[in-house]
Design a protein around this nucleic acid. Structure first.
Lengths: 193, 193
DNA sequence: AAAATAAGTCAACATGACTGACATAAATGA
DNA sequence: TCATTTATGTCAGTCATGTTGACTTATTTT
């Protein structure tokens, strides 16, 4: 142990001042169920690992995560308009414009003039785009499927279990240790470590 | 009903009886259960909205999401070393260094020399840091709690439901519509558009 | 004919990642 | 003891991706 901090209770603000329990303010967070914060952390870890494999593949193409998102949605919903993408991604037109242009220039997406409204530019994946989208999706689907299987295997239908299983296997022991070593634990149970 | 995807027939048995453990490689994504891709999309939307409120608060301080992560983990596990943070965040020392320095300079975190190993710099939140961490956590905890309540209310312990409820209420109708309108659906039913 | 809408563009800037090269202090071990 | 390893910090440069703000063009709507 002592991986992070030793006796959990010794946590103080290092300003010398005693912990004082209520630093006032949003005590919501302090009195809240620690399990909620655990879930928030698990979501962070799950998402952190969820994006790793695709990111690595994208690197080969000189693309980033933004390209992945655009390609994914266009691939899954061909004929989507630029405005639709903006609403989904919640980024600015300029931000989208940059990555979309690259995807078009490099032949992963094509535009087509709308038939009903010729102002619209409908987006479609090319074969190449479809292929890359599938390749990027593969590790993510595998990960989600694995996590669902593991959740069901454990019988508990807990969100916590699913998110934990979304973490890359190699990192799970680390996260597990982390979740056992934190502040606010002693509220519920005097779990020593 | 049909909070997320109503024609569940689309998704053969959510993660299906036969995901078949390591199915074919490349075409995995094409033949895979569409519900898995739905989950991937829901995770994206959930995370997108999960970070919005804190991001807005951080703006007031001239901080970004990176500061939030560092402050959160230091606050919840006081006495953490720099190396611990690096392992958690999986970023480079230089990246961490920049935001950590700002948090220290502006009085949200303090360092203390390790007693056992004087090379170590143990990190602690100041009162101010603790306060900000709590304020940042509050909307996220609220969101997670809400999603859990809604999940339980619906009785189905589905991950899908939880992630869907993690989306900001105002955006849920949009996402719901999106999830009903996508490719791979016509495998089962000829939904036109 | 005027106004609104969909898309695109230019420019400038901020954040937070990255690599690579080093520096310093302290602990460890041969 | 001296050499090596470890923990941390720093300088410098680059890249990806987000932001504002100001405009343009084409087309549809009013």
């Amino acid at each position: 142990m002592t991986d992070i901090n030793e006796p959990v209770r010794t946590a103080r603000t290092a300003t010398g001042a005693a912990p004082k329990e209520t630093a006032g303010i949003a005590d919501e967070a302090q009195t809240a169920d620690p399990a909620l914060l655990d879930l928030a952390e698990l979501l962070f870890f799950a998402y952190r690992d969820f994006t790793r494999e695709p990111d690595k593949i994208l690197d080969e193409f000189g693309f980033g995560r933004a390209h992945h998102r655009v390609l994914h949605f266009v691939n899954r919903r061909p004929g989507m308009r630029v405005a639709d993408l903006l609403k989904i991604l919640k980024i600015t037109k300029q931000s989208l414009g940059r990555v979309l242009k690259q995807l078009i220039d490099e032949g992963f997406i094509v535009q087509e003039e709308g038939k009903l409204d010729r102002r619209e530019r409908l987006l479609y994946p090319t074969d190449r785009g479809h292929e890359l989208a599938a390749r990027l999706a593969e590790p993510q689907l595998e990960r989600v499927a694995r996590a669902l299987r593991a959740s069901r295997r454990r019988g508990d239908a807990k969100i916590e279990t699913f998110l934990y299983q979304m973490i890359s296997e190699a990192d799970r022991p680390h996260v597990e240790r982390l979740l056992r070593t934190k502040l606010n634990m002693d509220h519920k149970q005097g779990e020593p470590q």
